[in-house]
Design a protein around this nucleic acid. Structure first.
Length: 490
RNA sequence: CGGGAAGUAGCGCAGCCUGGUAGCGCACUUGCUUUGGGAGCAAGGGGCCGGAGGUUCAAAUCCUCUCUUCCCGACCA
């Protein structure tokens, strides 16, 4: 099919970055807003986010978390309480300093300065901790397990739709526990939840692991992440969970009276995942025809396009489309596109939108009660089957769709992961021409970590799954037995 | 925030050097034709050329400032 015309004007191979933008625009997911660094998430893109939310939210609740909502604005002096935390976020903080506009010479000028400037939340550990400190008196009040779905703002220098925008949507879970063990278990559990979501739901091959010390969340004791490989070989951090120790409890005075009658600081965690996951989906599963969506998060599983010719059979064709919808809607989200437009153009639009199964229904299908199907994940392979078979097979077809996406990505992941790079010079040489995931040994020493900076590589994580084999550190050549993943990252 | 490029109709671009009433392709509207694979012909609609200032009789075009986007760095989910 190499000679087939593709649905996008630019391929992954030609220009990955332009391709990414073409997929995003072609699927009508989002666009740049008139505000610097911010995006407008359009209906189809937001529908994907809503699917993600629904799935994760149900899982969080199943695990005992409750949703709530905290203010967008955080008094700046709260940040003075946690030194590492401020250090991490200060540079990208947006601050509200005034509360009033006045008109001067036809221009609006901020007028009344605030006594205490307010930060637009970059994350909510502090303001949630402030509440927790009042909620928690006794060990009987623990654990506190909460989550919020909201927006946050980080003033990034360089932005890209979904991957890095000044404002983005996310969920942030915050929990407080009686013991370190319990809090560590929570951070680990949520790390598992994210792995499940990214791997099992989004069908993205990824590595769960711990961040090296120099790359932890600002104020955390341990940070865990999910590292996924994009189709240009770069790593994308897909979700993180943190064990915060007693750092935030100390800063915000989250104390409780324990079983021993004494006062103790709580152990807290936080964990988050963002609309960046959509960027990850795009860069993992899309191809030169556009987006490709795993069924769990696809707004529509099946789109039916009637082929109408302005004849007296048109009504019959449309009713047949409704029969098809009724036959399969128990097992699939179905949309009949009745918009007056060229059927061919609609077809290519839905190809770009990554709809798993696109059905074209005209006179022929009406005559013999069959369905013509284009399988998005199988290089637009076409087949025609009787409606009753379609009804029987729809679930299997979606499972097959997901399997194809998963297998393609697994294969790519496998082919682009190297475990044979043993020395820094080999590493340097490799990354001069290619982007790969490299599994190598690291001593854990901060010494020579700057060598990685020089070649634009980072230690993505210390994978949870360790080989336990002995070897030499790729940076210092000392004996080392810890495996790490090295890669370029987004 | 440093280095580079670009902003002209919804999208992609030409025009700018050498100032003189704003163009092309796609998309959109209408009509006719076509019709199982991203249609053809014809007629239309849509832009004070990113914004502000300056030079000039006259600015899309020259000058200054500014905003935004894209690419390469640094920073980050």
């Amino acid at each position: 099919m190499a000679d087939r015309k593709h649905a996008l004007p630019v391929s992954r191979k030609e220009d990955f970055s332009a391709w990414y933008q073409a997929v995003t625009a072609g699927a009508d997911l989002a666009e740049n807003a008139c505000v610097r660094g911010c995006m407008v998430i359009k209906p189809y893109g937001f529908a994907i986010w809503e699917r993600m939310q629904a799935i994760m939210d149900a899982k969080f609740k199943e695990l005992g978390h409750c949703n709530c909502y905290f203010p967008l604005l955080i008094p700046v002096d709260l940040f003075e309480r946690e030194a590492d935390h401020v250090a991490g976020f200060a540079k990208e903080m947006a601050i509200v300093t005034h509360h009033r506009l006045e008109q001067r010479d036809g221009k609006l000028i901020p007028a009344s300065p605030l006594e205490t400037p307010l930060a637009i939340r970059p994350t909510s550990e502090l303001i949630i901790g402030e509440s927790m400190s009042r909620w928690i008196k006794s060990y009987r009040d623990l654990p506190v397990l909460i989550n919020q779905w909201c927006n946050v703002m980080r003033w990034e220098m360089r932005t890209r739709l979904f991957l890095r925008t000044s404002e983005f949507l996310w969920q942030e879970g915050h929990t407080a526990h009686e013991t370190e063990e319990e809090a560590r278990k929570e951070a680990r559990t949520m790390h598992d939840v994210y792995y499940w979501f990214v791997h099992d739901i989004l069908k993205i091959s990824c590595i769960p692991g711990k961040k090296p010390d120099h790359d932890r969340f600002a104020g955390a004791v341990d940070t865990f992440s999910i590292e996924a490989m994009m189709q240009d070989g770069k790593a994308l951090q897909a979700a993180t969970s943190h064990y915060l120790g007693q750092n935030f409890a100390r800063a915000m005075n989250i104390q409780f009276q324990g079983r021993d009658d004494k006062l103790h600081l709580a152990h807290t965690t936080s964990w988050g995942s963002t609309t960046r996951l959509i960027g990850g989906l795009i860069m993992v599963h899309s191809d030169d025809d556009g987006l490709n969506l795993p069924s769990e998060v696809a707004p529509y599983h099946v789109v039916i396009i009637p082929l109408l010719k302005g004849s007296d059979r048109d009504d019959d064709i449309v009713s047949f489309c409704h029969s098809i919808k009724r036959a399969i809607e128990k097992s699939a989200r179905v949309f009949i596109d009745l918009k007056e437009a060229e059927a061919q153009n609609k077809k290519w639009d839905y190809v770009r939108k990554g709809v798993p199964l696109i059905c074209e229904i005209g006179l022929r299908e009406l005559e013999d009660q069959s369905v013509s199907i284009i399988k998005r994940a199988s290089n637009l392979e076409k087949l025609r089957i009787p409606l009753n078979k379609f009804e029987e097979q729809i679930e299997d077809m979606l499972i097959e769709h997901d399997k194809i996406l998963q297998q393609k990505n697994e294969e790519y992941f496998r082919e682009n992961t190297r475990d044979d790079i043993k020395t820094y010079s080999e590493l340097k040489e490799l990354f001069e021409t290619e982007n790969k995931f490299v599994i190598a040994k690291w001593s854990g020493s901060q010494e020579n970590v700057n060598l990685l900076d020089e070649i634009g590589i980072t230690i993505r994580c210390i994978p949870r799954q360790q080989s336990n084999a002995k070897g030499k550190c790729i940076l210092t050549n000392e004996d080392a037995d810890m495996d790490v993943i090295l890669a370029k990252s987004y």
